[in-house]
Computed example of a mutant assay.
Amino acid sequence: MGTLYRHFPTKDDLLATVLEQQFTSWLTAAHEQATATEDPWQALAGFFEQMLTTQAGNRAVIESYASTGGPTSSCAQRCYSFIDELRTRCMNAGLLRPDVTTADLVLLSGSLSQAVLTTGDTHPGQWRRLLHISLDGLSSRNTEPLPEPAAHLHPPRND
Protein backbone atom coordinates (compact mmCIF):
# COMPACT_ATOMS: atom_id res chain seq x y z
CA MET A 1 0.00 0.00 0.00
CA GLY A 2 2.88 2.36 0.76
CA THR A 3 4.16 2.12 -2.80
CA LEU A 4 0.69 2.80 -4.16
CA TYR A 5 0.31 5.93 -2.02
CA ARG A 6 3.79 7.18 -2.95
CA HIS A 7 2.84 7.09 -6.64
CA PHE A 8 -0.80 8.13 -6.19
CA PRO A 9 -1.35 10.35 -3.14
CA THR A 10 -5.11 10.50 -3.78
CA LYS A 11 -7.77 8.35 -5.40
CA ASP A 12 -8.21 11.08 -8.00
CA ASP A 13 -4.52 10.79 -8.97
CA LEU A 14 -4.90 7.04 -9.41
CA LEU A 15 -8.14 7.46 -11.39
CA ALA A 16 -6.55 10.08 -13.66
CA THR A 17 -3.63 7.76 -14.42
CA VAL A 18 -5.89 4.79 -15.15
CA LEU A 19 -8.12 6.92 -17.38
CA GLU A 20 -5.13 8.29 -19.28
CA GLN A 21 -3.79 4.77 -19.86
CA GLN A 22 -7.18 3.57 -21.10
CA PHE A 23 -7.59 6.60 -23.35
CA THR A 24 -4.10 6.17 -24.79
CA SER A 25 -4.71 2.48 -25.41
CA TRP A 26 -8.02 3.18 -27.15
CA LEU A 27 -6.59 6.01 -29.25
CA THR A 28 -3.63 3.88 -30.32
CA ALA A 29 -5.96 1.08 -31.43
CA ALA A 30 -8.22 3.56 -33.26
CA HIS A 31 -5.25 5.10 -35.03
CA GLU A 32 -3.92 1.69 -36.11
CA GLN A 33 -7.34 0.67 -37.42
CA ALA A 34 -7.82 3.93 -39.33
CA THR A 35 -4.33 3.79 -40.81
CA ALA A 36 -4.98 0.24 -42.02
CA THR A 37 -8.25 1.33 -43.64
CA GLU A 38 -7.59 2.46 -47.20
CA ASP A 39 -10.90 4.28 -47.73
CA PRO A 40 -10.79 7.67 -45.92
CA TRP A 41 -14.55 7.75 -45.30
CA GLN A 42 -14.51 4.25 -43.83
CA ALA A 43 -11.58 5.29 -41.62
CA LEU A 44 -13.57 8.27 -40.29
CA ALA A 45 -16.78 6.29 -39.84
CA GLY A 46 -14.82 3.43 -38.27
CA PHE A 47 -13.22 5.83 -35.81
CA PHE A 48 -16.60 7.09 -34.62
CA GLU A 49 -18.03 3.57 -34.52
CA GLN A 50 -15.09 2.24 -32.51
CA MET A 51 -15.11 5.21 -30.14
CA LEU A 52 -18.80 4.94 -29.40
CA THR A 53 -18.80 1.15 -29.13
CA THR A 54 -15.95 1.41 -26.63
CA GLN A 55 -17.84 4.03 -24.67
CA ALA A 56 -21.09 2.05 -24.70
CA GLY A 57 -19.22 -0.92 -23.28
CA ASN A 58 -17.41 1.17 -20.66
CA ARG A 59 -19.94 3.71 -19.49
CA ALA A 60 -18.39 3.87 -16.02
CA VAL A 61 -15.14 5.07 -17.57
CA ILE A 62 -16.94 7.77 -19.52
CA GLU A 63 -18.81 8.87 -16.42
CA SER A 64 -15.45 9.03 -14.61
CA TYR A 65 -14.17 11.35 -17.33
CA ALA A 66 -17.16 13.57 -16.73
CA SER A 67 -16.35 13.76 -13.02
CA THR A 68 -12.60 14.40 -13.54
CA GLY A 69 -12.95 16.95 -16.32
CA GLY A 70 -12.03 14.67 -19.21
CA PRO A 71 -8.76 13.37 -20.56
CA THR A 72 -5.51 15.18 -19.88
CA SER A 73 -4.59 17.99 -22.24
CA SER A 74 -1.91 15.83 -23.88
CA CYS A 75 -4.48 13.06 -24.52
CA ALA A 76 -6.96 15.61 -25.86
CA GLN A 77 -4.27 17.09 -28.15
CA ARG A 78 -3.35 13.64 -29.53
CA CYS A 79 -7.03 12.91 -30.16
CA TYR A 80 -7.51 16.30 -31.85
CA SER A 81 -4.49 15.66 -34.09
CA PHE A 82 -5.79 12.22 -35.02
CA ILE A 83 -9.27 13.56 -35.84
CA ASP A 84 -7.60 16.29 -37.92
CA GLU A 85 -5.69 13.60 -39.82
CA LEU A 86 -8.96 11.75 -40.54
CA ARG A 87 -10.65 14.98 -41.62
CA THR A 88 -7.77 15.86 -43.92
CA ARG A 89 -7.84 12.43 -45.57
CA CYS A 90 -11.56 12.74 -46.23
CA MET A 91 -11.22 16.33 -47.41
CA ASN A 92 -8.41 15.44 -49.83
CA ALA A 93 -10.55 12.64 -51.26
CA GLY A 94 -13.50 15.03 -51.74
CA LEU A 95 -15.69 12.98 -49.39
CA LEU A 96 -16.27 15.53 -46.63
CA ARG A 97 -18.16 18.75 -47.02
CA PRO A 98 -15.53 21.48 -47.44
CA ASP A 99 -16.63 23.64 -44.53
CA VAL A 100 -16.32 20.95 -41.83
CA THR A 101 -13.55 21.73 -39.37
CA THR A 102 -11.65 19.50 -37.01
CA ALA A 103 -13.31 21.35 -34.13
CA ASP A 104 -16.69 20.34 -35.63
CA LEU A 105 -15.69 16.67 -35.56
CA VAL A 106 -14.36 16.92 -32.01
CA LEU A 107 -17.60 18.55 -30.89
CA LEU A 108 -19.58 15.88 -32.74
CA SER A 109 -17.63 13.14 -30.95
CA GLY A 110 -18.52 14.75 -27.61
CA SER A 111 -22.17 15.08 -28.58
CA LEU A 112 -22.38 11.47 -29.69
CA SER A 113 -20.60 10.39 -26.50
CA GLN A 114 -23.30 12.15 -24.53
CA ALA A 115 -25.92 10.30 -26.57
CA VAL A 116 -24.30 7.01 -25.56
CA LEU A 117 -24.64 7.97 -21.90
CA THR A 118 -28.13 9.38 -22.24
CA THR A 119 -29.66 6.46 -24.12
CA GLY A 120 -27.61 3.60 -22.68
CA ASP A 121 -30.20 2.40 -20.16
CA THR A 122 -33.38 3.07 -22.09
CA HIS A 123 -32.38 2.67 -25.75
CA PRO A 124 -28.99 0.92 -25.99
CA GLY A 125 -27.50 1.26 -29.44
CA GLN A 126 -29.65 4.27 -30.36
CA TRP A 127 -26.40 6.17 -30.79
CA ARG A 128 -25.79 4.16 -33.98
CA ARG A 129 -28.77 5.86 -35.61
CA LEU A 130 -27.48 9.28 -34.57
CA LEU A 131 -24.02 8.40 -35.86
CA HIS A 132 -25.40 7.50 -39.29
CA ILE A 133 -27.48 10.68 -39.42
CA SER A 134 -24.40 12.70 -38.43
CA LEU A 135 -22.12 11.01 -40.96
CA ASP A 136 -24.69 11.59 -43.68
CA GLY A 137 -24.70 15.29 -42.79
CA LEU A 138 -20.90 15.43 -43.09
CA SER A 139 -20.87 14.04 -46.62
CA SER A 140 -19.70 16.23 -49.47
CA ARG A 141 -23.08 15.53 -51.15
CA ASN A 142 -24.46 18.23 -48.86
CA THR A 143 -23.67 21.59 -50.37
CA GLU A 144 -25.70 24.03 -48.29
CA PRO A 145 -23.20 26.12 -46.29
CA LEU A 146 -22.94 25.49 -42.58
CA PRO A 147 -23.36 28.34 -40.11
CA GLU A 148 -20.10 29.98 -39.09
CA PRO A 149 -18.25 28.08 -36.34
CA ALA A 150 -18.11 29.55 -32.86
CA ALA A 151 -14.98 31.61 -32.37
CA HIS A 152 -14.07 29.84 -29.11
CA LEU A 153 -13.67 26.35 -30.65
CA HIS A 154 -9.92 25.92 -30.88
CA PRO A 155 -7.63 22.91 -30.62
CA PRO A 156 -6.71 21.88 -27.09
CA ARG A 157 -3.62 23.53 -25.70
CA ASN A 158 -0.44 21.55 -25.26
CA ASP A 159 0.21 22.08 -21.55
Rank of each mutant, 00 (worst) to 15 (best):
L4C: 02
L4W: 09
L4R: 01
Y5F: 15
Y5H: 13
R6F: 12
R6N: 12
H7P: 04
P9L: 04
T10G: 01
T10P: 08
D12F: 00
D13I: 08
L15S: 03
L15Q: 06
A16Q: 10
A16S: 15
T17I: 03
V18A: 14
L19W: 00
L19I: 11
L19C: 08
E20V: 08
Q21R: 13
Q22C: 04
F23S: 14
W26E: 10
W26D: 06
L27N: 05
A29Y: 07
A30S: 15
A30H: 09
H31N: 11
E32M: 12
A34V: 07
T35P: 02
Q42K: 11
A43N: 03
L44R: 06
L44P: 07
A45M: 02
A45E: 12
A45P: 00
F47M: 01
E49M: 04
M51T: 10
L52W: 07
Q55C: 06
G57D: 04
G57M: 01
N58H: 14
N58M: 09
N58E: 10
N58G: 09
V61Q: 08
I62P: 03
I62L: 10
E63K: 13
E63A: 14
S64V: 05
A66W: 03
A66C: 06
G69H: 07
G69F: 06
G69L: 07
G69C: 02
G69M: 05
G69N: 06
G70S: 05
G70C: 07
S73M: 15
C75E: 11
A76P: 02
A76I: 05
A76R: 03
A76Q: 09
Q77D: 11
Q77C: 04
R78G: 02
S81T: 15
D84Q: 13
E85W: 12
L86R: 07
R87I: 07
T88R: 11
C90E: 06
C90L: 08
C90T: 03
N92H: 08
A93F: 09
L96W: 02
L96F: 00
R97M: 05
P98M: 04
D99A: 01
D99Q: 01
D99S: 03
D99P: 04
A103Y: 01
L105M: 12
L107N: 08
L108V: 12
L108M: 14
G110L: 11
S111A: 13
S111F: 15
S111H: 08
S113E: 07
Q114S: 10
A115C: 08
V116N: 00
V116L: 03
L117D: 01
L117E: 06
G120V: 03
T122H: 08
H123Q: 12
H123D: 10
P124E: 05
G125T: 03
R129E: 13
S134N: 13
L135Q: 05
L135S: 00
L135C: 11
L135Y: 06
G137P: 07
G137L: 11
G137E: 11
G137V: 00
L138H: 04
S140L: 01
S140G: 01
N142S: 01
T143H: 13
E144D: 14
P145A: 10
P145C: 09
L146R: 15
P147S: 14
P147R: 01
E148D: 15
E148K: 14
A151S: 09
A151N: 00
A151K: 10
A151G: 04
H152Q: 11
H152S: 12
H154L: 15
P155F: 04
P155M: 06
P156S: 10
P156A: 09
R157T: 15
R157I: 12
D159A: 12
